[in-house]
Deep mutational scan, measured.
Amino acid sequence: MSRESDVEAQQSHGSSACSQPHGSVTQSQGSSSQSQGISSSSTSTMPNSSQSSHSSSGTLSSLETVSTQELYSIPEDQEPEDQEPEEPTPAPWARLWALQDGFANLECVNDNYWFGRDKSCEYCFDEPLLKRTDKYRTYSKKHFRIFREVGPKNSYIAYIEDHSGNGTFVNTELVGKGKRRPLNNNSEIALSLSRNKVFVFFDLTVDDQSVYPKALRDEYIMSKTLGSGACGEVKLAFERKTCKKVAIKIISKRKFAIGSAREADPALNVETEIEILKKLNHPCIIKIKNFFDAEDYYIVLELMEGGELFDKVVGNKRLKEATCKLYFYQMLLAVQYLHENGIIHRDLKPENVLLSSQEEDCLIKITDFGHSKILGETSLMRTLCGTPTYLAPEVLVSVGTAGYNRAVDCWSLGVILFICLSGYPPFSEHRTQVSLKDQITSGKYNFIPEVWAEVSEKALDLVKKLLVVDPKARFTTEEALRHPWLQDEDMKRKFQDLLSEENESTALPQVL
């Protein structure tokens, strides 16, 4: 008996699950189920560990084997000379395990699969056993689809999209007709009724959600790893209520002995410091949205989908001078704002400069500016000194954290500008005749005249004003913003236009 009217009423009120309206889709043409990776026989039982391990490696599972009696060998002398080797079968990115008779397991190899009674669906509900069930008529011709799209860092995100009359449910929550939600590992998919569980979705590319604290899981769906560094790992996640993407940084307390840091400095109150950081608001710094204190720290951040500045300059790639100017102007505005709010970044580098898009002209935002507030000064500097390429001379020669101030950030900005303009770092371990530390503390950077011949004198002058060993003589952010190279009204107008595109209400910060 159909429950279409009941569920449609529920759909009209929406769902609290991570779902959002989605535009129309072009329906895929039908194809045989076997060619799409559906096993030839149905099963109602969950797999054992041996079955799972075989399939996850990209080899055929026991459900897909063919009797050897149906095959015969071709003698080598009868092999056609022009026969080309077969292409290897792509490894599946996800697996659906059937929970009921009449449904088959599915190895997801393609990027898009339609499910329903219509014969054009890649996964067609046409098993005779299924057709005899009382629920068969409640399934729509095109009930739902599972697909994946390219996300940040060229990774993939799996989604389920509801197109049914009676509802598609993920972990008992209604997706909603015309809406989608991301699928995470071990999600249970039910059709027409929330208790009519048909599939379990296994994402073969992500970790299980159960490793994360419950308070975090209640608000966010964790997904793929976006990156990792000395101070922690960053994962893509989704807000459950809105389906908006965020980035979540995970900082290990054990790695940084944060408990010991608190004992050594009783004034170090991470929760208080995070609340201060959350109040920071500038178009060129990453917004801190939320914070969870569990076995590790979880910092929920605004997501930038254009990648890191590092990706644009790695491998001796240089940027156009006009692009360097647009990016560097924004970096200076961001660091100036942090300094005005009493925050020294201490870890400025291309990896911590994020881009809003893949376009050459785009907004940038500074991230990882609050680590000293979370990890403690000593722990952070011990970590950073392991990779000193961007560290100021006074940091390398000081004991502990004494003896330096916000000028350290201006040195790091000078190193970043040098790399963007030239395509190579000013200080490098590859210069074996002088140690990296000695290069930095003496201010002897690697200047290649033929490379810098293409760079304007004004740009080079600003680099020199920032890479000054004496912090008292080094340019401040205010002085850098007043430098002739940055007195470019076309560049500032472009920045204002980019801000307006992102948010019509965002105004250009005042600069002296």
Rank of each mutant, 00 (worst) to 15 (best):
R95D: 06
K255F: 03
N171R: 10
M222G: 12
K179G: 00
T89I: 09
S187M: 11
K119V: 15
R117L: 00
H143W: 01
A264K: 13
M222A: 00
P152M: 00
Y156E: 03
G58R: 12
S44K: 04
L174D: 09
P21A: 04
S31T: 08
S15Y: 10
Q78G: 12
E81W: 14
M46E: 15
I38E: 14
R95M: 01
C108L: 05
N171V: 01
A247N: 00
N105A: 08
R240F: 08
G167C: 00
H22L: 08
T45L: 11
T45S: 09
C121D: 02
I258G: 10
Q20S: 07
S16M: 09
S55D: 15
R217I: 06
P80G: 13
Y139S: 02
T133E: 04
S164I: 02
L96C: 11
L99D: 08
S57T: 11
F125N: 02
H13I: 09
F238E: 01
H143E: 00
V170C: 06
P90N: 08
K224P: 14
Y159N: 15
S12L: 12
G23H: 11
Q83M: 05
K142H: 04
R117W: 01
K244H: 09
Q83K: 08
E233C: 15
L183V: 14
F201W: 15
Y139K: 03
Q20E: 09
S56N: 11
L174C: 03
E122A: 13
F202R: 00
P85F: 08
F115L: 08
E219G: 10
I160P: 01
W97A: 07
E188F: 10
F199S: 03
V66F: 15
P85I: 07
C124F: 11
K224A: 05
G23F: 02
V270H: 14
A267M: 10
T59A: 03
T138D: 03
S52R: 04
E79Q: 14
W114R: 12
L106C: 10
K179A: 06
Y113E: 02
G116S: 02
A237S: 07
P213S: 06
S260N: 12
I258A: 05
D162K: 01
A215T: 11
A261C: 03
Y136M: 07
D134E: 07
S12F: 09
P128S: 05
P88Q: 07
F103A: 06
D265A: 15
N185P: 08
Q20A: 09
S15T: 06
D207G: 12
Y72N: 15
L130M: 06
K142W: 13
N166W: 15
Y136P: 03
D207A: 02
E188L: 05
G176Y: 12
H13R: 09
S252L: 05
N186D: 06
E70W: 05
